[in-house]
Nucleic acid binder design. Structure first.
Lengths: 201, 201
DNA sequence: GCACTACTAGAGAGAGTGCTCTAGCCTTTC
DNA sequence: GAAAGGCTAGAGCACTCTCTCTAGTAGTGC
């Protein structure tokens, strides 16, 4: 026996890439098998639940990879704003000219609500995990506790939105713009907090 | 002859809703026909290009509807930040419990790069149009010209990201959080501009 | 009445889908 | 050597997909 789960790993990695580039429904089983070099029978041996189970596993793997990357970016930065900015820089390097790259969860997440509640939950777990990482760093930066959830949520939205727009438009400048916005929103523990309180309501 | 394009309108509206809720590939032709009450033959009369042409038309219609809503929100607000916030409030009201709602373009946009360049371009046009609207308002607010593209891009990313995360997580609080962030990012013509310049390059 | 156009209805083709199932290989263990 | 089990290969099934094609209806102008 060579490496346990070798073809299984191939399946998960291939599926994760295809989910990122074209989503769940657009990814046919035959495409996964062809690009991973694994046979039909092997797939149903490792994933008795079929395509949906494979997709869920792939989402979890992608989610963990992003969590790790985000953690590294945040840990090495002077504050959460710079950390998120560096994460966006890292993400920019993974884009290709033909529109591949971006968030590995978003395409599947957006089609999941009516298609597969199971995948929707898996995607939501990913987003939550990333948000928690940002929130942890904000607390470490000294942000007041009641401002943390709001700022972390905005940081996550900024990341996801920038990756989405950059992917579709093909213009990576959107990532750089979001980076600057992250610096404004997440860099200072206090400051613009007070200013935002007296606007509209 | 009753109303010209009656069944055509039905097709476009049904397709637009399905694209918003589950994306392009997950939307079968049979589902569009069943839910719109239009026959197969009528579809190919109005849209000789088939499903892809119908989807493109639906995206354009949705894009225009969003542009109009965004314009109304911005026009009635004291500044761009409040306007974007009101747009998010309007968007929140259109969500349903089962995960329907959100950006009508994003799901299709994210699966389009490898599936249909035609739909990708249509989606990119939508995003660009919305970004232009925000930029126009920022200029009217007195923002310096060289700061406008960056701020408009960040505003668009914030909107798209918040709609995405809110849809998948089912928690509309993300929209309220993004609203507050929009106030910080887009409310003041100058101010935090200077502060963001001396952070990490 | 006739011709013409706009539109509709729906059967059916051809290709593709996810998945089941049987047969068999290869390694391990006794 | 033999048995056992993890894993693989691939044929085939039942179903769905988009799209083509023919037949037909309704309204209009002459």
């Amino acid at each position: 026996m060579a490496i346990v789960g070798d073809s299984r790993t191939q399946l998960v990695q291939t599926m994760a890439r295809l989910l990122r580039d074209q989503g769940y429904t657009a990814t046919g089983l035959s495409q996964v098998l062809a690009e991973s070099g694994v046979s039909n029978g092997s797939l149903y041996h490792h994933f008795p639940g079929g395509m949906e189970e494979l997709a869920e596993t792939a989402l979890e793997a992608s989610g963990k990879a992003v969590t790790d990357a985000l953690t590294r970016a945040l840990d090495g930065a002077p504050n959460a704003g710079v950390g998120v900015g560096r994460f966006l820089d890292m993400s920019a390097e993974l884009f290709t000219d033909d529109g591949c790259g971006g968030c590995p969860v978003a395409p599947t997440a957006l089609e999941s609500p009516l298609i597969s509640p199971r995948l929707r939950v898996a995607a939501a777990r990913c987003f939550h995990s990333w948000e928690v990482r940002i929130a942890q760093r904000l607390r470490a930066d000294g942000w007041p506790e009641d401002s943390v959830p709001e700022a972390a949520s905005a940081g996550l939205a900024l990341i996801e939105g920038a990756l989405l727009v950059a992917k579709v438009s093909g213009q990576l400048g959107h990532l750089a713009h979001a980076k600057r916005a992250a610096l404004v929103l997440l860099a200072t523990p206090s400051g613009q907090r007070a200013r935002s309180n007296d606007r509209e309501r």
